[in-house]
Nucleic acid binder design. Structure first.
Lengths: 362, 362
DNA sequence: TCTAGAAATGACACCGATGTCATGACATCG
DNA sequence: CGATGTCATGACATCGGTGTCATTTCTAGA
């Protein structure tokens, strides 16, 4: 592979002049520039990133650590969107800014993170993004990159800048939308309580109910673990059964994620209930391949992974550039809108009922 | 960031000795090693990848170009597994071998490939993997890396080493399995003909039928485009309708991919047909989130993306190391097995019928 | 005790760019 | 016409490691 010296000799100029042509950082006479460019293409010259990094002390690299590329979580584990979309969003922004991303995958083994960080530091990354598989609290082993780190889909106690989905507002919007469509009895198959998103979602749900003057009924909210179908006993079936056999059963089932909703479609069909005519269903995530291609289409809430990745990238870039922005520190929430598809029926008669209801109460 | 010189001074040795400790490429007295290691951790020293690359002329980097991370294909487009799994498989192998992967995403714009290749060459990648989104023919702009390139999920006219899914054997195994379960009238909703996988799948299908002595009925094979549900008229509905209204309708519908099968579940339900009691359904891809969590579970064929990625990585490593293996050149097929879940009913009575049939014929 | 050969370490150049500073060629202006 | 400033270019050192070869220190055998 030819070097800048070869090019310089071929063009009859000094290496420094070639460098100037390549970087455009100082004036070069047009005729000289032409000669240099001719030499470059004649010799198939390609700059050495290593050499310029060494001299300039700027690598132009950003490290992203993720489990995204690794195999999916085991049975019973949270099944949100694949976090690869977060990576995509971040990479888009970094590419725009001329930075190259170095994506390291944990392969699902968190204990390998320090090793990955080490490799990234060897490459002299200018910043680090850590992407978690689902909304959670983490303890990231900072090292060297202590102050050039942004967490996505997770947060820590150390006050590291982070970008999180706005679970509260997402569920709030969904529930409010259901209420606007006339639903009053809203069943809620939730995530396990230990999931960081769960209390937020529930808070959003309750807030929306309260704003509409609908009393919160704890019987309608059931944690529903989603087990691998190979397991004989499906906890989801049980949770659904408890909802449907209530004295006053719900007119809509809110599922904690689209995957769960997909399973609920099948379970409802087994019970002879048609979606949405006899019962409405919603999901969460807007996992397109499910929500868009299930039949009928699934109403759900967008989990804005791409946007979160992009936000994180922008935040990190600001930090790197030392732009002391208020938005640089602390936690940033990104909200995703509900998407209404065919799985939710508007209970027109009840809309009226609710509206009067809503006015009477509060 | 401290350098090897700082460490050398701190430990009272020469830089070269520090290098030896780091690389373990020459004997170092234990006491010296200890001093050096103490200095390294005291100074938080991290090697500079740029410097060693420059001197040793080995970057330890592999470039992967993909559209995987980019947004999903538009409506009507093929909807196989996300090719990120191919990347994952390749990265696993490369990591094992101590190589770091530099993943570049086209963002869905093929015209940006040359630009990405340029960047990868600047980083002096030792090899290149190109990952296509679905089985297809491509023309990859070689450059510099001409002879250190492996294609995955695609192939070209230039005889570039490639790794492809064995579509023929996959469909053959599926059809044979259906026949073994007593199905004789097998409906086949296929990919568009222009898809590279399609003729191969059909060939596998026909071969399995022929081996069982079942006559091929063209009326049972219909290309079925999968449109976005927002489009009012669903070509899939039409194709399915044509199959179901045949004089002798199929007892099983083979779908070209799991996503299509998921939609077919819904459409069949609309027609009042229960899966698998009244009609069986199969997919293709083993897109886990669908096949495993649909209810009932979907019988399908594994599209072995992870394995393909791993194979491609191994092939590229052999090429880089100059191990002139027969498996280094040409196309390598990777077969995936069928996975039988609840969506296929064994027609026990018909099994007998078929077996006698099979013996009588041929 | 002396010496050959292995073990351990160091001196020095070099990988391929770019930052700094110097210099020659020209244009502008009083 | 000389002073001054700008433009265009080059010389040289340097970034942080490692390859090559030389040198010193041990160890063991004669």
């Amino acid at each position: 592979m030819s070097t800048i010296y070869d090019v310089a000799r071929e063009a009859g100029v000094s290496p420094k002049t070639v460098s100037r042509v390549l970087n455009g950082d100082a004036p070069v006479r047009q005729s000289t520039r032409d000669r240099v460019e001719a030499a470059i293409s004649k010799l198939d010259f390609v700059r050495s990133h290593a050499a310029r990094t060494m001299r300039s002390q700027r690598s132009g690299l950003i490290g992203i650590i993720t489990g995204a590329i690794s195999t999916s979580p085991g049975p019973g584990e949270p099944a949100g969107l694949p976090d690869i979309h977060i990576v995509q969003g971040a990479q888009r922004i970094f590419a725009q800014e001329g930075m190259t991303t170095l994506i390291s995958d944990t392969g699902g083994r968190l204990d390998r993170v320090p090793e990955l960080v080490q490799t990234l530091l060897e490459h002299r990354v200018e910043g680090l993004v850590y992407v978690a598989e689902f909304h959670q609290k983490v303890t990231f082993p900072r090292r060297g990159a202590a102050d050039r780190l942004v967490l996505v889909n997770c947060y820590d106690d150390a006050g590291t800048p982070a970008v999180l989905p706005d679970d509260k507002s997402g569920q709030h919007a969904l529930t409010a939308g259901l209420i606007a469509r006339g639903h009053v009895r809203i069943g809620f198959l939730t995530l396990p309580e230990r999931q960081a998103a769960q209390p937020l979602r529930l808070a959003g749900h309750k807030a929306a109910l309260a704003e509409a003057g609908i009393a919160f009924d704890p019987a309608l909210v059931i944690p529903a673990a989603l087990l691998d179908p190979l397991h004989e006993y499906d906890l989801l079936w049980d949770a659904l059964d408890r909802l449907l056999t209530l004295d006053e059963p719900p007119t809509v089932i809110c599922c904690a994620n689209d995957k769960m909703a997909m399973r609920v479609y099948g379970l409802l069909r087994d019970r002879g209930l048609r979606v949405p005519d006899q019962i409405s269903v919603t999901g969460y995530d807007d996992y397109r391949i499910i929500s868009n291609f299930l039949h009928p289409g699934l109403s759900t809430v967008v989990l804005p992974y791409e946007a979160m990745g992009a936000r994180a990238a922008q935040k990190l870039l600001r930090i790197i550039r030392g732009e002391p922005d208020s938005s640089t520190a602390g936690i940033e929430l990104v909200a995703g809108p509900p998407v209404w598809r065919e799985s939710v029926l508007s209970q027109t008669s009840k809309i009226v009922e609710f509206q009067s209801n809503g006015r009477k109460t509060t």
